[in-house]
Design a protein around this nucleic acid. Structure first.
Lengths: 193, 193, 193, 193
DNA sequence: TATGAATGAGTGTTCATTCAT
DNA sequence: AATGAATGAACACTCATTCAT
């Protein structure tokens, strides 16, 4: 029964993610989580201080998954020209989203649970955010349109998320559109002139 | 304080909308709604069969607000050329969103409550949807990119929603960017070649 | 079944008092209270905002019972000399305590629940308290010993409470000692010279 | 920080006492106790069979502290006359209570936790109790009033406990009233004629 | 139309206690 | 001697919903 002895903490987080995907973030309850994992409800509190900490940890896990999967360093490599780096960024989000089709959905849902919605990638508020820096530089260099960075990121996020959601819900196959097809739309939106 | 003649039904819906904006969709309870309206809790059930019906009605109200505010008819007016009609559509969403900055947020939050997220405008699944028809025609006429309509609509929705949210949260003033600035990004994204 | 249709609020308070007497204040739980009254647990919250409010109300009820039973007015009647008024005060506490043998116990237990113990009558901290005023005047008039009022009140409370508890627990009969016997001890303790 | 060699058992009891003083007896939980001591929760059960045993042990510890601190033997020394022995008894309780201002409070709180309140010193029910014997003898010898011993002890306990609590809560300084001041009140209460 | 009383199921959380290691 | 993991029962409290008035 016990498959890989994957540690409980992760199992609980998995259960939360699964419930979020199945019923939306409001459906997450310690009872349901525990039942899904096959432990006593009170057991959840051995691993997480409270429900909020649990949900936050799920969010953080997705975030760190992105960071560890993608090659953030190259996005700030000044020896690469800006359009290439932006393409790199989009490609990374694209690849990640295809590989983990639910990840962005989970993060979006968690954000929605608490208060205002999240239209763009996490960390947008963080001025140190590498992506924000990249896009700001691109705006300054007149490479992309002189619009708020959040709009640019919104296009990237919205397009890729919609696309991968379409695929994972079987609305069309993954091969029907290439990355270049998707990137064309995004880049046309962003680029100046 | 508010209009005297506004019927209770609407007052209740207003309360729901206010709570959604203030605390997120999970914060909506008949108790809180009733307290906000100043009626007995059980009274809510005089106007709505149950909580789900209430929330659905709030969603529907926003939808119909869009429809009644915007001039849908012209979008299917075959005597107007496709690019113009698309621009018209974007402009209508834009105007509406600026006039009712919370409307799209509310709809998005309600969608998030139940299950899967909503990346695009309501009714996208409806094949009869006028906007879908318009964009499908535009794809066929090779006016916009041969990509799923949901991607096109996603760009429209994401960009405008992010923009108006930015404004209503004071991140910049409404005059800082014109409709044309915003539309340029959207249209560049959509248009073929 | 429904005996006197005594209102629920009071029934709930009665249940709390009974539990306090039977199991101590830590034994009070909404579950037990509800069960004793024969209502649903959630029902308790129709009548009391939360558990603390419920317990406070029980305390307040006992307090007001004292105030309504005893003739506070005469204690501040300046036309009566101080020793007589003090005797009156002791008599009133005595009579009350005999008539409601659990009342002082309940109040003491509730005080103990929260934090520091209560050795004396409620309201001792209140400088306007009539009894405090009376005893302070008696100290000033050199009628009773120049000691803190709380010590004087402690003797009154402790002696009477112990006495009536003894009686209600059958350690001796109510007739075995007269009020004068008890008062003698108290008055000897208090009086100057 | 504390004495290094103090054994765990005592540390745990200290934690219980500290919690009782800080939050009242209802605030004692094995979780909090363990956290305060810096051990695992389950560890508490290595030293005490269960929670009740732990709390009882704290009570017993205070009791034995009194007994070991005070000179019980002299209270039953028939060569000393009764009034002197009573004064000795009161002095011992007084000294102890001043030296350990929380001790009586802790004992009182623990008694309150379980059931009936404690108005007097522990062991009053025990017919062998030395103090009871002393006071009974004093009643028989017509040295003190012919009232229940519990009333006499109640005055002693109440007065001293109130007094030392007043001091430790800063209501007045320890030097403001001498032992003789306090004893006068107690002795006047007790003594015959 | 409106209300207040009622309730059962559910929420998150804490607890005392046990047990394998 | 010590721990961490585990658990079932309890807790205070909220909820959606019903019903008699």
């Amino acid at each position: 029964m016990k498959k890989k002895d994957m540690n409980k903490q992760a199992k609980i987080q998995d259960a939360v993610a699964a419930i979020i995907l199945a019923e939306g973030p409001a459906g997450v309850s310690t009872t349901k989580v525990a039942k899904r994992v096959g432990i006593a409800q009170s057991n959840v509190y051995l691993y997480f201080k409270n429900k909020q900490a649990l949900i936050d940890s799920v969010y953080a896990r997705e975030t760190s998954r992105i960071l560890s999967t993608t090659d953030i360093a190259r996005l700030s490599d000044a020896t690469i020209d800006l359009p290439t780096r932006i393409r790199l960024y989009v490609q990374q989000v694209y690849d990640y989203s295809l590989a983990h089709p639910d990840s962005l959905t989970i993060m979006q849902q968690i954000k929605a649970l608490n208060g205002q919605p999240m239209t763009v990638l996490p960390g947008v508020a963080d001025p140190n955010n590498i992506v924000v820096k990249l896009l700001t530089a691109a705006v300054d260099a007149q490479v992309i349109k002189p619009l708020p960075v959040s709009l640019h990121m919104g296009v990237v996020f919205s397009t890729i998320h919609t696309h991968t959601t379409n695929i994972s819900q079987g609305r069309y196959s993954a091969t029907q559109y290439s990355f270049d097809d998707i990137f064309q739309l995004i880049w046309d939106a962003m680029k100046r002139d």
